[in-house]
Design a binder for these strands. Structure first.
Length: 439
RNA sequence: GCGGCCAUGGUGAAACGGUUAUCACAGGGGUUUGUGGUACCUCUAUUACGGGUUCGAUUCCCGUUGGCCGCCCCA
């Protein structure tokens, strides 16, 4: 009783609940793009024999902090971390590679024929400031090859990535580089910082910070002055160890072999710690050389030969993978005017009038549907006028109308929505009649 | 984390600080419960939220929240 009283007092409309910042709904109209992407992505994964893997969205926090690097922004400030009710420190996954590798180890996939190829697609979470093509919940599609170290694996993976975008109707180009091993990268960083320090008076504020925190990022600063200075900076390829250099050379040969167009970008680096050797990005190729920086990468990936061992798996399990930012891919599809196939126009609209007819319609609708027609209805609407209006709006070619009179007579009206002509036929003939008209 | 622009119905817009906030589209309902694509009627906003200035605020000021865009970072 007290409740109803409260309810009455609380009559004023309450404010509608909004989505959280950086979160959004993907509505039916938008889905044609998503469905198009999903379909192409699935087809590509299938034809190259990648098996789908789905991993939990929620993982132990340390899975990411240990693998991505504690110092990285992703772990340090962008990860959704909290204690669950049992007191475990958990995190919403900010990416999927670490989870896939965890699964590889957990399920003893080292006993499968190597390399193991897997793909995934799903939501990731980063507590970023939202902007164009960036949300706090975003979707990635990715491929991982674990247990294969040969450069041919890298080459085919890059090939697959380009094929995906080709299938999507997007013009893209590949940028590649090699960042060597943890050790050589360390040596290179020292050299790079030394070079930067010599020019520090001309570097931007961000770059001053990068010198200490993330030296490799000095290379792709967008500020004109920094860019100019870094052109003459020592290049990481000159610091590669021999096996890494050979690996890189082989990769290039393979890419040439299959005709994948690529650009060597000595300034291309990765943000996450686990990468080594091959790194690459897929960026839009918009003809004009408006170099839009790393911001515009549609997909990115690279080799992570140390990760499996680092996570407690068997030693020397090399691996390589990449991920596509699906929002960005879709944004680029719109940019390049890629038209995904439209939703199919329904063949038949099923209209009814009166209670008896409605009852019969519910059943008859199923028969029409089972006969293979794309049929829609608006049973919730009472007036025939309103129903035909709907039929017209959805673009149905034919409307069938069942009223009280027809139910009594065992007939049904079939109306051609284009010409407006209609005829009354025996109800048993409906399916055959529709087949004839819609043939 | 830093910076710029912005915030009016479902959408897109309008309203010199001044009576019941205007228009278009979309949507719901109806125009004597049986016919659409061309009519008409009608309904749908405490102008994001909270303060302030003012006789009076959608309009001016501050704060909050949110959106877009750029930086950082990343896919």
């Amino acid at each position: 009783m007290a409740e109803s009283k409260e309810g009455a007092a609380d009559k004023k409309k309450s404010k509608a609940v909004e989505t959280l910042r950086g979160m959004r709904d993907i509505l039916p109209d938008e889905q044609i793009y998503w469905e198009y992407f999903r379909r192409k992505a699935r087809e590509i994964a299938d034809t190259y024999s990648y098996g789908r893997i789905e991993t939990p969205i929620l993982e132990q926090e340390k899975l990411f902090s240990r693998t991505l690097g504690k110092q990285t922004d992703v772990v340090e400030k962008e990860m959704y971390v909290f204690d669950d009710k049992g007191g475990d420190k958990v995190a919403l996954r900010p990416e999927a590679t670490a989870s896939v590798v965890r699964a590889y180890i957990n399920h003893g996939m080292l006993n499968l024929p190597q390399p193991v190829k897997m793909w995934y697609m799903g939501p990731m979470f980063r507590y970023d400031r939202p902007q164009s093509g960036r949300y706090r919940q975003f979707y990635q599609y990715g491929l991982e090859v674990i247990g294969g170290g040969d450069a041919v694996v890298d080459a085919q993976l890059i090939l697959i990535a380009t094929k995906l975008f080709e299938d999507l109707g997007l013009k893209v180009k590949v940028e590649i580089n090699s960042i060597g091993t943890m050790q050589t990268r360390q040596e290179y960083k020292i050299e790079l910082v030394a070079y930067a320090r010599k020019n520090k008076k001309d570097l931007c504020e961000d770059c001053m910070r990068r010198m200490a925190k993330n030296p490799l990022r000095l290379l792709d600063c967008k500020v004109e002055a920094c860019h100019a200075i870094m052109k003459n900076a020592p290049q990481i390829v000159d610091w590669l160890d021999d096996p890494s250099r050979d690996h890189f050379m082989e990769l290039i040969e393979y890419l040439d072999e299959v005709g994948v167009p690529y650009v060597l970008n000595p300034h291309l680096v990765r943000g996450l710690d686990y990468y080594n050797r091959t790194v690459f990005e897929i960026v839009p190729d918009r003809g004009d050389d408006a170099e839009s920086g790393s911001q515009s990468a549609l997909a990115a990936g690279g080799r992570y030969d140390e990760l499996v061992e680092m996570m407690g798996g068997r030693e020397q399990t090399p691996a390589v993978g990449f991920a596509v930012g699906i929002e960005r891919a879709i944004l680029e599809m719109k940019q390049q005017n890629v038209e995904p196939p439209a939703m199919p126009v329904p063949d038949v609209f099923f209209a009814q009038l009166g209670k008896e007819a409605r009852r019969a319609s519910l059943r008859l609708f199923e028969e029409v549907r089972k006969a293979g027609f794309n049929v829609v209805e608006a049973f919730g609407k009472a007036s025939l006028k309103a129903q035909l209006e709907s039929a017209n709006k959805v673009g149905a070619h034919v409307a069938v109308i069942l009223g009280q009179q027809e139910v009594q007579d065992g007939t049904i009206i079939v109306r051609d929505m284009d010409s407006g002509s209609q005829e009354t036929i025996p109800i048993e003939k409906l399916i055959d009649n529709l087949k004839r008209i819609l043939k």
